[in-house]
Simulated scan of single mutants.
Amino acid sequence: MISFFTKSKGHLKICEDSLTASVFDLLKYLPTEIFWKILKKSLYHDKLPGISGELIGIRFWEKWSSDGTSNLRYVEPDVFVEFSGFWICNKKLYG
């Protein structure tokens, strides 16, 4: 939840951004293996590897270049999770 406020996303209310920050701000404190199992089981398609490597970092609402996309100005993923084995970007986590 701290990330929701430090990124100046708004005021406390039930919304996608506060839910994303709340969930990932707590998951990052779990051992990496448990975090990875939860993340892997939460996806519709089980296409992620069994082992992720160590959690390197979680970043929220970064603005990336729109080059190569249909976006006009930028791409803003809700959450970017990086592991030592690879990284995961999920532009729209909930729906």
Rank of each mutant, 00 (worst) to 15 (best):
I2Y: 10
F4M: 02
F4K: 01
G10E: 12
G10D: 13
I14K: 12
C15V: 07
C15R: 08
E16W: 12
D17Y: 03
D17R: 03
S18P: 05
S18L: 14
L19M: 09
T20M: 13
V23L: 15
L26K: 10
K28L: 02
K28Y: 03
T32A: 11
T32C: 15
E33K: 13
W36H: 01
W36A: 07
I38Y: 07
L39S: 04
L39Q: 04
L39C: 06
L43V: 03
Y44G: 08
P49C: 11
G50E: 15
S52E: 03
E54K: 01
L55E: 11
I56V: 02
G57L: 05
W61H: 13
W61P: 06
E62T: 07
N71K: 13
Y74Q: 10
Y74F: 14
V75I: 12
V75M: 12
V75H: 03
V79S: 01
F80T: 06
V81M: 04
E82C: 01
E82D: 09
S84H: 01
G85M: 11
G85Y: 00
G85L: 01
F86Q: 08
F86D: 02
W87C: 07
I88D: 02
C89T: 07
C89Q: 11
C89Y: 04
K91Q: 14
K92H: 05
K92A: 10
L93Y: 08
L93E: 03
L93H: 00
Y94L: 13
Y94D: 10
Y94G: 06
